[in-house]
């Protein structure tokens, strides 16, 4: 299995080779709003046309997240969600969902699960990559890289407006899949809309011509901010705005479809 995965092209790479439209990556927290929502949301997102899906592993202390995602983590934990349960829920999801799927989470639950076991189980269920905001590059290279690579998992690094050019180059050289471009100095869901200052940063990164695709996240919430971000990067990531939808979900499939369409569809019905 391991050998196959090395020869096989990672779904994320495959996807970026073929894509020609702006890429929409949607984040949701596992175990939210219901303990068993994971599969419903996954297949709902694929049907609705999300290009990539990011599943959050709930954690008691999500320091890079704003109130919306914090609340979803808290609720998921109250729902009894665990990383083990998530792995159980993900068994067989590849029969329904073909788009690339990455797991996002803080390091501690993964350390307790056991890093090697975690990577092995990710590969077995069909996960393509990992976003671990509190795993720094140094630790990754010394302790984790070996396991990620052995199991065909791309490690997705973050960059922010404060990241130096030299470090961006280093991150680009060590990245696989795509680079997660944090849109401003903030936690998730903190800001609405995109400022001139942010556009300057987007432009600066665009001109660096990195080898990896870039997706812009944090503060992307609607069609306008999605399209604006997509002019400077391959696409964007929506998290908090989707969690807000899940908070008041009525008809999962239809609601998710409407949400994704409201972001992806061209502005033909715009009132402006």
């Amino acid at each position: 299995m391991t050998q196959d995965s090395r020869l096989k092209l990672n779904r994320i790479d495959q996807f970026f080779q073929q894509r020609n439209e702006p890429v929409l990556n949607i984040y949701f927290t596992a175990g939210f709003p219901q303990p068993d929502s994971t599969r419903t949301i996954l297949s709902g997102l694929q049907k609705a046309g999300a290009d990539l899906i990011e599943i959050g592993i709930p954690f008691s202390d999500p320091v890079a997240d704003g109130p919306t995602i914090q609340q979803s983590n808290k609720k998921a934990l109250e729902n009894g969600m665990t990383l083990r349960l998530l792995m159980e829920q993900l068994k067989g999801f590849r029969e329904e969902v073909q788009v690339p799927v990455v797991l996002m989470g803080y390091l501690n639950p993964i350390v307790q699960y056991g890093i090697e076991q975690f990577c092995q189980d990710c590969e077995a269920v069909g996960i393509d990559g990992l976003i671990l905001p509190d795993l720094p590059m140094y630790e990754y290279q010394i302790f984790y890289k070996e396991f990620f690579q052995k199991h065909g998992l791309h490690n997705i690094f973050l960059i922010s407006p404060q990241t130096s050019e030299a470090r961006i180059r280093e991150i680009d050289a060590n990245s696989q899949g795509f680079i997660y471009m944090v849109s401003s100095a903030s936690v998730t869901g903190a800001k609405q809309g995109i400022s001139q200052e942010q556009l300057g940063y987007f432009e600066r990164i665009q001109q660096m011509k990195l080898k990896n695709p870039k997706l812009i996240g944090f503060g992307i919430s609607d069609r306008e901010s999605f399209q604006q971000a997509s002019r400077y990067a391959e696409g964007a990531i929506i998290g908090s705005a989707f969690i807000k939808l899940l908070e008041k979900l009525e008809q999962p499939e239809q609601d998710i479809k409407n949400f994704v369409e409201s972001i992806k569809q061209p502005a033909t019905q715009s009132a402006k």
Binding site: D134, Y138, V182
Partner: peptide
């Protein structure tokens, strides 16, 4: 030099805090 006391320590922070730290 990497911030460790034996096997404990290190610097596990999100990239946004990296420049400050």
């Amino acid at each position: 030099e990497h911030g460790y006391y034996g096997s404990f320590g290190g610097s596990f922070i999100p990239e946004m805090l990296y420049p400050n730290v």
